[in-house]
Structures are given as C-alpha cells and as structure tokens.
Design a protein around this nucleic acid. Structure first.
Length: 294
DNA sequence: CTTACACCCTGCTCGC
DNA sequence: TGCGAGCAGGGTGTAA
C-alpha cells in the first residue's frame, strides 16, 4: 500500500497527535512483525517524549527525548489509527479501517494526552526499530538509501548519472531504493507513463555515454516530482475527510492514469492506445505501448 | 558487481 | 456454494 505519498500522508496525520506527547504506555502484542522488535522495545519507549516526526523514503522516524529514534516501516499493509481523547471510546465500538481486524492490531501507543495510536498490519511486512538519533543516517535501514525524490537532488542530471551504463530496465532502476528511495510499483508506472518512456527501455538510455542527461532524463525527473506532489496533495485532502470520521490513516485512492488500468484507454492527450499489463521482476507493470517509447 | 527469483504473511477476487 | 490459483502498493536473502 504505502509508497512515499502515502507515508507522507500518514506522517502528517500522526504529527499533531504525536509530537510533543509522551508515551504513557506501549502495548506490544507479538514478538515480531517482519523482524523481531528491538530489545526492551516497550521499556525504551515508555516515558519518552516525541520531539519530531519525519519521513525518509518510505520510513517514518520519530525522534525521542531519550536520544533514540523510532523507525517505522509500513510494509504493504501497515496502518495507524488515531483515537483522540475527546472522542469517547466505547469498548466494542472501536472503529477500524474496512478490511482490518483487531486481531492485526500489533502495537498500541497510549500517549499522556489521552490519545491512543494503534498500528495494524495484516501481512506483517512492516517493522519497527530503535536506533540512536545521531546515527540515523548510517543505521542499517538508511545507510544504502538513495536520493529523496521530492528533494533538491532529483534532476535530469542526477538520474542520468545514476542510470548511465545500466542495462536493467527503467522500471527496475526506478524501483531500486539504493538509487531513488520512495518510489514503489504504482508511482513508477505512473511516472513512466507520464514521461512517455517504455518500462522495458534500458535505464542507461536516458543518459549519453558520458552520463549527461538526454531530454528523457529531464522529462522523467519532472514527472516523478509531479506525480508524487499530486499524490501528496490528494492524500492531504483525504486526510481532512478521514481524520474527523474515524481517525483512519494510511489508505487513499488516487486517480491513476496507467496503474491497474489494463485494457482501458490511455489517458494521455491525443493517444488512442490501450493500457497493457506485463510482468517485470515479478511485479505488474502497466503502460501504453502507443505513447511510451523505448 | 549485477540480475532473477523465492520468500515472508494474510486476505481478496476470479474462474471453474 | 466451494475451492484452488493467482494476485496484492513492501523489502530481503540467496544463487547464478
């Protein structure tokens, strides 16, 4: 579920409830998610105040007053639910996202403000870890991460440098978190479609032999930025709608142009093509063979 | 170094 | 209606 825009939306939803609050108690309901929880997970959280909540790629990072940071990855199905104190919670009446069940509530954070934040993860591909805040950048989760696609680093020049001489397909290169960190299957499909680039084209084809950007590199950088910004904006509006309803965070539908639209007409202006589906490195790719060229 | 693939886990949908 | 196959937006480990 969550790629960069969804994680950023979750961050914005959690921030007002979490930052400045203290963990009054933490309930860890199983020993592991994707990985085991760190040693003394609950003890290291309880009593700590959250100083800031940021995002790196698809990770959430809560900086704590203890000098440690809580790293959270949502995997495929991780969600947070915020129950504000002014909203009386009647036992048995607790609201969940459609499709989520209390049996998959794995961590419950109770804050000193009375707010309760619940982490639910059906497939348990998400995970949490605690690392020293000073060593975040070099910790095992972050050390190998590539550039932030919404940061200043993303440009045609950078993409050309990262992809030059790569024969792997563009799709695979864009999904590689060591090069660009935060894109997932949906937004890679969307960015390539918007940029008019074929997902099977060699990644190196956007660069000259010397690593200079071809026009397609600039186009790709622009479209990555555009589609992510639009999705973050859409998430923000979803957040406003949902936050007052039941506190659900982490899922929203965005109007995709290619993703999951196999057999439907291409939405690029002037193109009469049809969206096709192929499989690349085990994942579905959706693209238009008429307007996405190699 | 690359790239490909199985795998982790649960639930939903689709076709027979 | 039941049931198995296939699929799902995440990443990791292993092998070639």
């Amino acid at each position: 579920m969550p790629e960069l825009p969804e994680v950023e939306t979750v961050r914005r939803g959690l921030e007002p409830a979490l930052v400045g609050a203290r963990f009054a108690s933490v309930e860890q309901r199983r020993p592991d998610l994707r990985f085991p929880f760190p040693e003394r997970f609950v003890a290291r959280l309880e009593g700590a105040r959250v100083e800031a909540l940021s995002r790196r790629a698809k990770y959430l990072v809560a900086d704590l007053s203890t000098g440690e940071s809580l790293i959270m990855h949502l995997g495929m199905t991780g969600r947070f639910t915020v129950a504000l104190p002014e909203r009386t919670i009647v036992p048995g009446e607790f609201h969940h996202d459609p499709g989520t069940m209390p049996i998959h509530d794995h961590v419950v954070f109770k804050l000193d403000t009375g707010t309760r934040i619940t982490y639910n993860d059906v497939r348990r591909f998400g995970y949490m870890d605690l690392v020293a805040s000073a060593e975040l950048a070099s910790c095992k989760h972050f050390a190998a991460l590539g550039i932030e696609p919404l940061g200043n680093a993303l440009s045609g020049e950078t993409l050309a440098r990262l992809f030059v001489h790569k024969i792997a397909p563009l799709k695979a290169a864009l999904l590689d978190q060591r090069l660009i960190a935060g894109l997932g299957n949906i937004y890679v499909c969307e960015a390539l479609h918007r940029a008019g680039l074929h997902p099977e084209a060699p990644a190196g084809s956007i660069a000259t032999k010397t690593g200079r950007p071809r026009p397609s590199a600039h186009r790709l950088a622009e479209e990555i930025r555009a589609v992510l910004n639009e999705a973050v904006a859409a998430g923000g509006s979803t957040l406003r709608d949902f936050a007052h309803a039941d506190g659900s965070l982490g899922y929203f539908q965005h109007g995709f142009r290619a993703y999951d639209r196999e057999g439907e007409p291409c939405r690029n202006a002037g193109c009469g093509g049809t969206i096709a589906r192929i499989v690349q490195s085990g994942r579905s790719t959706f693209y238009c063979a008429d307007c996405q060229t190699r």
